[in-house]
């Protein structure tokens, strides 16, 4: 595995691999979403307590998983920047932040739209909801920090430190429903088992697969774009320095 990541240290090799994988990943994402949406909206039954609003869970829960998963992936990339100095680690961090922010926004908004009919309120300042809002604000902070520092090397190190510090919030989000008394329900799906009926679990897992494939597709596409942007910047700098040398 480590050897595979080391082999991707060459941006040209990574770009070639991304170009080959992207059409397949996009196709698989579309298929997973088509199957997941059909199962979630047509096949899955209504819940005996929540009624039809349980269908919001099929888009809300995977968004929450990916919101946390994306920050975890960014934290691994931050270690890649600070410890292993992998040349693509900061590219991955920069590419992943807007994707994570989008998943977190989906999680917050769909949760609010589920909360109104289920709890009778759009929002409560309980531990789970507040910690997810903090996660969203941290994604915005990372994106702002990238733009605030001109030198890409310094920006990468600053963002990596912020990401690792912010990782403290990931277990807080995960275990907030156990550590504090919250309106939000506890985890229904754990490693040891599931409290969800298989008729509802299947669409949830297929939708989660769709979200995961979308995350990987967007990450590769945005990393590829960032590599092209950096190459264009280098070419512009070389051209500008050539012009400057010509005028001296």
């Amino acid at each position: 595995m480590l050897r595979f990541f080391a082999s991707l240290a060459n941006p040209t090799r990574f770009a070639g691999l991304a170009d080959r994988l992207l059409p397949w990943l996009a196709g698989a994402t579309a298929l997973a979403f088509a199957a997941g949406l059909y199962m979630a909206l047509v096949i899955a039954p209504a819940d005996y307590q929540q009624g039809e609003s349980v269908r919001i869970m099929y888009i809300h829960v995977p968004a929450a998983w990916l919101a946390l998963g994306c920050w975890t992936a960014m934290s691994v990339a931050a270690l890649g920047t600070l410890v292993w100095r992998h040349p693509l680690a900061d590219v991955a961090q920069q590419a992943a932040a807007p994707v994570g922010a989008a998943f977190t926004a989906v999680c917050l908004l769909t949760g609010s739209l589920w909360g109104r009919p289920a709890w009778g309120t759009w929002w409560v300042w309980d531990a789970r909801l507040t910690s997810v809002l903090v996660l969203f604000l941290m994604y915005l902070g990372v994106m702002a920090l990238w733009r605030a520092i001109d030198d890409p090397g310094r920006a990468a190190r600053a963002v990596a430190i912020l990401t690792l510090v912010g990782f403290v919030n990931v277990p807080i989000v995960k275990f907030s429903v156990e550590w504090w008394f919250t309106l939000h329900q506890g985890a229904s799906l754990t490693i040891s088992g599931s409290a969800i009926d298989p008729a509802m679990l299947r669409p949830l897992l297929v939708m989660a697969l769709g979200y995961l494939l979308l995350f990987v597709t967007l990450l590769l596409m945005r990393m590829r774009t960032e590599l092209m942007r950096r190459r264009l910047r280098r070419m512009a700098l070389v051209a500008a320095s050539g012009l400057a040398a010509g005028t001296i």
């Binding site: 009624g51 039809e52 609003s53 269908r55 919001i56 888009i59 809300h60 968004a63 807007p98 994707v99 989008a102 926004a105 989906v106 908004l109 769909t110 739209l113 589920w114 109104r116 009919p117 979308l214 967007l218």
Partner: peptide, 22 residues
């Protein structure tokens, strides 16, 4: 309470955010 508008709004919000990002 009619739950349909909330379901439609939730799916629409998701499509707009994720579709926009794509």
């Amino acid at each position: 309470m009619n739950q349909l508008p909330f379901i439609v709004a939730a799916y629409a919000v998701t499509v707009v955010i994720l579709g926009g990002l794509v």
